[in-house]
Design a binder for these strands. Structure first.
Lengths: 142, 142
DNA sequence: CAGCCATTTAGACAAAGTCTATTCCATTAA
DNA sequence: TTAATGGAATAGACTTTGTCTAAATGGCTG
């Protein structure tokens, strides 16, 4: 009721899932509603606790299954910057990240702000699947 | 005896540790000998099992303490590409990585092969601590 | 030799994520 | 309407990586 502003309607989520070839079950819509509400980075853990605050309970296994499925279907992107947990990024456009090592928070780098000069020669028999650039930052002490 | 070729002498390791301000204990030298034998990427787990194959037993806690210490002292670099484990890279010169998502293996990208066009504006009040570029690759199916 | 302090250790613990066997539920078929 | 089917969800056991703690060890210095 009070987060109406950032809400995406249930039918929009259902659409999004269908378009990606994901059967829109109640739990997946529930999770999508949290994940796609606004561009953001969440760990499985955070998703789990938010889902279970705002709606009917969804099990841990389903959270992991769903996040994995969403990632496979391109609805969400896994970001690996923290040795202890995976972040799921609902912004699937090409971009990279700042990672604040003090706070553990992730921020998008707008695309255009950062690009590679050239692509290196790949190892034999491989093809590129993706490029991740992470700029680690910390509070500056002036 | 038979890996003499890739061996670094104990005294070389001791030197390296001293220069970095690390007291060269027996265990640390043991671990250094494995880690610094050649440029390579190892997980804590791998170090643990190799150490305990080739020399006197070193406890798990000491492996983690030592790897953490080495990283802090710049003898080794932590590489985060796999959600489930940290790799320790004995190549501390500036460079980036290919990560084979099929095999889970890490390969260095020679520096000069890869550079950024420009540095993006950092978030307010932060300073850059480091940049990690990972090119994820997989077996190409031609 | 005695004392000191860093280091090492075993093993308990914690957290993220996986697995399995069962239950649930929506859809189709009769 | 009911029965059958198969994908999805579930609880909870389990695994793995890594951390913590309290006690034991060991190398120096006086």
């Amino acid at each position: 009721m009070m987060d109406e502003i950032n809400m995406i309607s249930k039918s929009q989520i259902i659409d999004k899932l269908k378009k990606a070839g994901v059967t829109p079950t109640q739990q997946r819509v529930e999770i999508g509603q949290i994940l796609f509400a606004k561009p953001q980075h969440m760990s499985a853990d955070q998703v789990l606790s938010v889902v279970n605050q705002t709606g009917p309970v969804v099990s841990k296994a389903t959270i992991y299954n769903t996040l994995g499925l969403f990632a496979k279907k391109g609805l969400v992107r896994e970001v690996i910057v923290d040795p202890s947990k995976v972040f799921y990024d609902s912004n699937t456009s090409e971009h990279h990240h700042f990672y604040d090592i003090d706070t553990g928070s992730l921020m998008d780098i707008n695309n255009g702000q950062l690009r590679l000069e050239s692509m290196p020669v790949l190892p034999d028999g491989t093809e590129a699947e993706g490029i991740d650039i992470v700029i680690r930052v910390r509070k500056s002490m002036h």
